[in-house]
């Protein structure tokens, strides 16, 4: 019983730390640059941008909990948005076409995810290789459709999805909240969510416990694909155009956030709130960089550094914890 409490407290510690860091940055920035940082345009900008990669993070998180990785999410996002754009342009941009386009995007996402899941779960090709190849394939398909340049001329109403406010907050943020809730529900309240953790901890033992690993893998990457598609819709709506190489920096960012959010890179553990907090934190960092006019390339550098340091620190505590036992 005591141990139980300690364990729960440990899980929360990471979340509290992330939240604390977020609040600290918020306060510091509010003091340093109150006029710019607290301006509604800045806050709104954060709320528009954060869902774009935040939703991808959950796809990465699921894949990582399952013991794999999904590097193709950005490719799926772009391919889905390109297909959606083709549908909408083909249908003359009527409101109905927008619905049709979004459905098409989700279908494309699910299909790509299933394809990944099939190669990983059935043919047993390592997830890293599959999704790396998948990325190439999806970008390639996107390029084949767009012939290179961005697809423009999307219906104006489509742009509203990302750019309109509801109760003063941009719509994408609501999407992010809903997705977070759904993923939290899946992880907590479905058998799949439990089986995912078991499979990620020990694939052989889960097979020997009667868990259908193939099914779990398929659902995992399909969900990832659908999340990729949702993010793709938000990105293309934000720019009101679709292109095969939008958001190419998001892969590293999602990986960083998911690890930072307390997901075990070896699989088996992960918590939705941790990832959600890490998404918020990284958006604050990014925003702070922009406002302080720090060279935006420095962000790439810092993100890489944070990723490596997080891995080193968690690795250090793992070893220490093991020795103590």
């Amino acid at each position: 019983m005591n141990l139980d409490l300690i364990k729960n407290r440990n899980v929360n510690k990471n979340n509290i730390m992330l939240l604390g860091l977020g609040v600290a940055i918020f306060i510091i920035m509010s003091i340093l640059e109150p006029r710019i940082f607290l301006r509604s345009a800045n806050i709104r900008g954060m709320f528009v941008q954060l869902p774009e990669y935040g939703i991808l993070c959950y796809g990465m998180m699921l894949a990582m909990i399952s013991g794999g990785i999904d590097l193709s999410l950005v490719g799926i996002a772009n391919l889905a948005s390109i297909v959606a754009a083709s549908v909408m342009i083909g249908q003359d941009g009527s409101p109905f076409s927008i619905v049709l386009g979004i459905i098409a995007a989700l279908l494309v996402g699910a299909t790509c995810g299933l394809f990944n899941g099939f190669l990983i779960g059935y043919l047993k090709i390592p997830a890293m290789l599959v999704t790396l190849c998948g990325l190439q394939l999806y970008i390639g398909l996107g390029l084949a459709i767009t012939k290179g340049p961005a697809m423009t001329g999307l219906p104006e109403a489509y742009g509203n999805i990302a750019n309109k406010l509801f109760l003063g907050i941009p719509i994408p943020f609501y999407v992010f909240v809903v997705v977070t809730a759904v993923i939290a529900f899946i992880m907590r309240s479905t058998i799949y969510g439990q089986q995912l953790k078991f499979m990620g901890t020990n694939e052989t033992a889960s097979k020997y416990s009667g868990i259908n690993n193939l099914k779990v893998t398929l659902i995992t990457y399909m969900t990832g694909g659908i999340l990729g598609a949702i993010s793709g819709v938000l990105i293309s709506s934000h720019y009101n155009s679709a292109k095969s190489d939008y958001g190419s920096s998001y892969t590293l960012l999602t990986l960083l956030i998911v690890v930072l959010g307390g997901t075990d890179p070896d699989g088996g553990e992960g918590n939705v709130m941790g990832v959600a907090f890490a998404v918020l934190l990284l958006q604050l960092v990014s925003s702070a960089f922009n406002i302080l006019r720090i060279n935006s390339f420095l962000k790439t550098f810092v993100y890489g550094l944070i990723l490596v340091l997080t891995m080193l620190i968690t690795g250090y505590f793992d070893v220490r914890g093991r020795d103590k036992n």
């Binding site: 990986l255 070896d266 790439t300 550098f301 993100y303 890489g304 990723l307 490596v308």
Partner: peptide, 21 residues
């Protein structure tokens, strides 16, 4: 003993960011 993919992705980002910045 950090996973090679994650480690080299991180180092890649550090090197690339450092070059540009």
């Amino acid at each position: 003993n950090i996973s090679p993919l994650i480690a080299t992705l991180g180092v890649s980002s550090i090197a690339n960011g450092a070059t540009l910045a």
